[in-house]
Design a protein around this nucleic acid. Structure first.
Lengths: 112, 112
DNA sequence: ACAATTAATCGTATATTTGCGATGATATGT
DNA sequence: ACATATCATCGCAAATATACGATTAATTGT
């Protein structure tokens, strides 16, 4: 059974894994890139940019929203999205912290 | 259908998404941490450290190997794993490149 | 030779992810 | 009021991911 064993892990590890999961699809990476590029918030333009159907793009946006990496607001008939820079910075911090912690040892120890 | 649409995206985005997917589970983050910590390569000790069954740990190791983030060698009856620092550095570079590209705009543009 | 240890793999169950068409709800333009 | 545009959500299908017990294969210790 794929019972969720998240409780059994460190909070830091779960947090990082969740952020990583948000980035674990090229469409979502592309969405973030596009949102950052056009400082003006885009909505259905994303559908034009991506090789995916509107429903699918909507779903990826939902994922990014769930991870709190983007904010969305209804602007008339359209939906306006933008990067949540606060959380985004937090994510970068988490990744950097992990990478800093995982340092190559002083070459004395050769592995297998 | 969950037909793979990877071909339709930029190589850079696919590469990064693949690395992100490798980190998208707390167990795999924990494995990398443990491998880095004990410069000496561990094998079944990981099973003791993790709250998962041996078969499950083996599967996560397989995932990390698929992403080329770790190397594994059979050492007698045991299996010895270690971080593939070359690829690991490459991954860090990819993430840093992404994060550098996604810069918060000069505050002029307020989003939604 | 034989029991015990180690770890990969198989089979299975369940959950999640990915993708899309269709539908519905809201807003806009005429 | 009515046709159109925009987008979230639903329902469905297929693929992946997660987890584990059981089995297998190889190694080690006695």
């Amino acid at each position: 059974m794929a019972t969720n064993k998240k409780e059994a892990f460190d909070t830091a590890e779960v947090t990082l894994a969740d952020f990583a999961k948000a980035l674990a699809h090229p469409a979502r990476v592309a969405i973030l890139k596009t949102l950052a590029e056009r400082s003006t918030c885009v909505c259905g333009e994303l559908v034009d940019v991506l090789p995916l159907a509107q429903a699918t793009v909507s779903q990826h946006l939902k994922e990014l929203k769930k991870a709190d990496l983007i904010k969305g607001e209804i602007d008339g008939a359209k939906s306006c999205y933008c990067i949540n820079w606060e959380v985004f910075g937090l994510m970068i911090g988490e990744f950097n912290h992990l990478f800093a912690g995982l340092q190559r040892p002083p070459e004395s120890s050769e592995c297998c």
